[in-house]
Amino acid sequence: MDPAQESPENPFGMDTDCQNCTDLCDARTNVVHGYGDAGAEFLFVGGRPGPGADRTGIPFTGDEAGRRLQRILGELGFSNSSPDAERPELDNAYLTYLTRCRHPDRGPTDEEITTCDPYLTADLRMINPEIIVPVGTTALRGVAVEHTTRDPETLDAAESHATTIRGRGFELVPMRALDEQTDAETEAFIEHLAESVLGRDYRQTKGRSGAHD
C-alpha cells in the first residue's frame, strides 16, 4: 500500500451518508466506497456491493463471491490476507463499484448508475490505474461508456472473461460475475492476468488516449 496512505478504507474521504438515491437510503446497510492501495496500478470494479460488502462496508468481502475475488487477489500477489478477511491487506490493487449502495431485491437502475458516476470518476482520476478489471457485465458496460470505443450494449463479461480490451488510456480485463464463475474460469482469469498482463510491460498503454480497442 502507498506508504503515505493513512487507511485503505475510503481513502479519498467520500460521503459515507450519501442521500442521492432515495430508494437506496433505507434499503442499504452501508455506503460502500473504494478500498485498497490508492497508488494501485490495478483497479477492480463491480456493479454494486454484494450482501457481504453491504454488511462490512468493504468492497468484495463478507460473502462467497467476495471470498472468490480475495482468493484471486491472493493468487496474483495483490493480497497478503486470508480470503475471509473483512479488511484485507492489499498491495497494488484497489476495489470499488459503479454504485455504492445495495438494494436487496434488485440491481442498480440506469439513473442510480448515472447518479453514482462521479464517485467512480473520482476514483479513476485519483488512482489513474494501468489496468481496470470490470467484474460482471454491468460494470463492464458502465466502464466501456467512457473508456472504450465499443458499443457497451455489445459487451458481455461472460464472453469477454479473461481477455484484454484496449481502451482509452487503460486496458480492460473483464471478469465474469463472481457468483457465476466456475473454478476453471477463475483459473483462466488468473492465468491470463499473470501471463498476458503482469508478464509484460503493461505500463506502455498508460496515457494512450487515442488507443483503439
Rank of each mutant, 00 (worst) to 15 (best):
N128G: 10
E159M: 04
R125D: 12
E171Q: 10
I127S: 08
E159W: 05
A85Q: 05
E112T: 05
V143M: 14
D156M: 07
R141N: 06
E130N: 11
D91N: 10
T137W: 06
D123C: 14
G77I: 07
E89A: 14
L124R: 15
F170R: 02
R141H: 07
A158C: 00
P104Y: 09
D110W: 03
H147R: 08
E86N: 14
I132V: 11
M126N: 15
T109V: 09
L124P: 05
G107D: 02
D123T: 12
H103A: 11
G167N: 11
R125I: 01
C116R: 08
E130F: 12
T137L: 02
R106L: 01
H103D: 08
T149L: 12
T149A: 12
V135G: 02
D117R: 15
T109E: 06
N80D: 15
A85L: 00
T109H: 10
Y94W: 14
R100F: 09
N92T: 10
D117P: 00
E130T: 12
T96L: 06
T154L: 00
T149F: 02
A157F: 03
T149I: 09
E112L: 01
D110K: 13
A144M: 03
P118H: 14
A139N: 02
G167Q: 01
L120S: 05
G77F: 05
H161Y: 06
T114R: 11
H103Q: 01
L120M: 07
N92K: 13
E153G: 02
T148W: 02
A144P: 06
N80Q: 15
G167R: 08
V145K: 13
E112P: 03
V145D: 04
L120H: 05
A144K: 07
P108V: 03
P134C: 11
R102M: 13
